[in-house]
Computed example of a mutant assay.
Amino acid sequence: MKRIYFICTGNSCRSQMAEGFAKQELSSEWQVKSAGLEAHGVNPLAIQVMQELNIDISNNQSTLIDPTYLKQCNVVVTLCGDARDRCPTTPLTTHKIHWPLPDPANATGTLDERLVVFRTVRDQIKNRVIALAKQLAY
């Protein structure tokens, strides 16, 4: 089985959303996981904006990077510069991809204003995961 890992700093928003989309878009030959350099818990607004697209990440857990799984990955996607710079070493055969996306958890303002940021980042992740799934299908 092929393995993919989505990694960001806290495993609370971006990597969780990417995992949700990847589980929907990638074929069953892929094992999909996400993790963080730290475990901040899954952000309720990430859960909400994914539910708007009928993807349920409410039972996901915020986890730290599993070194054993990381070493077995075919693809590792970092979703922030911190994760890219601090991610543990991967084998040379691991395809590494970096998506420099803003952290929606840092959004400020009213709930509606923060939701706009979450939706924008969610949609960017969705588009990138769809493109990646097409690329990995070959």
Results as ranks from 00 to 15, higher is better:
M17D: 12
E29T: 09
S28I: 08
S12I: 10
Q24R: 15
A35G: 13
A46W: 10
E29C: 08
S15F: 09
L37S: 11
G41F: 10
A18P: 08
S34R: 12
L45S: 12
A22G: 05
A22P: 09
H40R: 09
R14Q: 09
S15V: 10
A39G: 03
C13I: 05
A39I: 02
E19T: 12
N43I: 03
L26N: 06
E25A: 15
L45F: 14
L26R: 07
H40N: 13
S27L: 01
L26F: 09
E25Q: 15
F21E: 02
V32C: 03
G41Y: 08
G36M: 08
K23P: 00
S27H: 06
E29V: 09
M17Y: 10
E19N: 12
G41R: 08
C13Q: 03
I47P: 10
F21H: 10
N43W: 08
Q24P: 00
Q48L: 13
H40K: 13
C13K: 01
C13R: 06
P44D: 05
Q48K: 14
Q31V: 14
S27W: 10
W30S: 06
Q31K: 15
Q48R: 12
Q31W: 06
C13W: 04
L26G: 10
E19V: 13
K23Y: 00
N43T: 04
V42I: 15
A39K: 07
K33A: 11
H40W: 13
M17P: 12
Q24A: 14
S15W: 05
V42N: 02
M17Q: 09
Q31Y: 01
E25G: 01
V42A: 01
P44I: 04
L37T: 07
Q48V: 00
S15M: 07
Q24M: 15
